[in-house]
Simulated scan of single mutants.
Amino acid sequence: MKVLIFSARNFEKEYLKNSNNDKHKITFTLDALSSKTAIQAVGFDAVSIFSGDIACNNTLEKLKDFGVKYVALRSAGYDNVNIRAAAILGIKVANVPNYSPYAIAEYAAGLLLVLNRKLIEANNRVKHFNFSLDNLVGFDLNDKTIGVIGTGKIGSLMVKIMHGFGCHVIGYDITENSSLVDSYNLKYMPLETLCKTADIISIHVPLNTETHHLIDESLIEIMKPGVLIINTARGAVVETSHVIKGLKNKTIGGFAMDVYEKEHDIFFKDLSNTIPTDDMLITLNVMPNVLITGHQAFLTKEALTNIAETTIYNLDCWSEGLKTENELYK
């Protein structure tokens, strides 16, 4: 099978090559999939895309015309793919549902520690031989209340990690996990109650019509003053402009984000020699109580291995005329 790998980054190429082991004829391109770049897929049976690629109806129609029959996602989330349109067009789509929930949960915990204890500022000072401790005061996580929004595979691990820190863990999800209640004394409650109660909020829900801008002004207004918010889920789960307002009026004491609702055409690129034009990102980037990373929570050796292996597995199944259990339907 001839496969075009869109948005191919250097850090993942070797993992894909090793997993493929010359079974498929794969070609890498740094370009992201869009309606403009879809023409590169002429002559390919399948394309593989990442979270920053856009497989909208128009793009999928072009892929269909170019002879593409399969779309292999290298991510768990698939909000960037019009699954219904793909089904109508007869294009099969599969994702990587379980590459490493540990990578995301551990990273979320790391963001919390760095944000709370102001480690970036402390390190920057020491680089200039400034060993002052002024304005570096954080707080103990022990005995604090952390609200975990979304208790699936990643959220469940976050519950376990925070329980280990001695936190009181509360949760919100449309489906409750009784094992978390039994093992870690997790207390489920309505989202509004969680926001009123939590000292820290960590977000672990997928992006869909129900979760788009889930964290907005109405919820931020009822949060405890000084709350810390950690988002390693999807950028558009939070209304960024409302978060900025909450930071300015000090309702939100700190915000750590590995995802951004306008990250397309920004993240995964070196823009250091360009003039930034995104006002919200500029505002967040200059705030001392905001920590931003460029969608790297998944970036571990284990996760990259699992992503590559599952991506190739999905392609293997299709090439053999089989259905993969990772196929997505609408």
Rank of each mutant, 00 (worst) to 15 (best):
residue 4 L to E: 05
residue 18 N to H: 08
residue 19 S to F: 04
residue 23 K to D: 00
residue 24 H to W: 06
residue 30 L to Q: 12
residue 37 T to P: 09
residue 44 F to K: 05
residue 52 G to M: 14
residue 52 G to L: 12
residue 55 A to Q: 07
residue 61 E to D: 08
residue 66 F to T: 00
residue 70 Y to M: 07
residue 73 L to Q: 08
residue 74 R to A: 11
residue 76 A to D: 00
residue 77 G to V: 01
residue 78 Y to H: 14
residue 79 D to Y: 08
residue 88 I to T: 13
residue 88 I to G: 11
residue 93 V to A: 10
residue 99 Y to R: 11
residue 104 I to E: 08
residue 105 A to R: 04
residue 118 K to Y: 02
residue 133 L to T: 12
residue 133 L to F: 09
residue 137 V to K: 09
residue 138 G to W: 01
residue 142 N to R: 13
residue 155 G to T: 05
residue 161 I to C: 03
residue 161 I to M: 09
residue 174 I to R: 12
residue 197 T to E: 15
residue 201 I to G: 00
residue 201 I to L: 07
residue 208 N to M: 04
residue 216 D to C: 15
residue 217 E to F: 03
residue 222 I to W: 04
residue 222 I to Y: 04
residue 230 I to L: 10
residue 237 V to W: 04
residue 238 V to M: 15
residue 241 S to R: 15
residue 246 G to L: 03
residue 247 L to D: 03
residue 248 K to R: 11
residue 251 T to F: 00
residue 258 D to F: 09
residue 265 D to L: 03
residue 269 K to V: 00
residue 274 T to V: 06
residue 275 I to R: 12
residue 277 T to E: 15
residue 279 D to C: 05
residue 285 N to T: 09
residue 291 L to A: 06
residue 293 T to Q: 03
residue 300 T to D: 05
residue 300 T to Q: 07
residue 302 E to Y: 07
residue 306 N to L: 07
residue 329 Y to R: 01
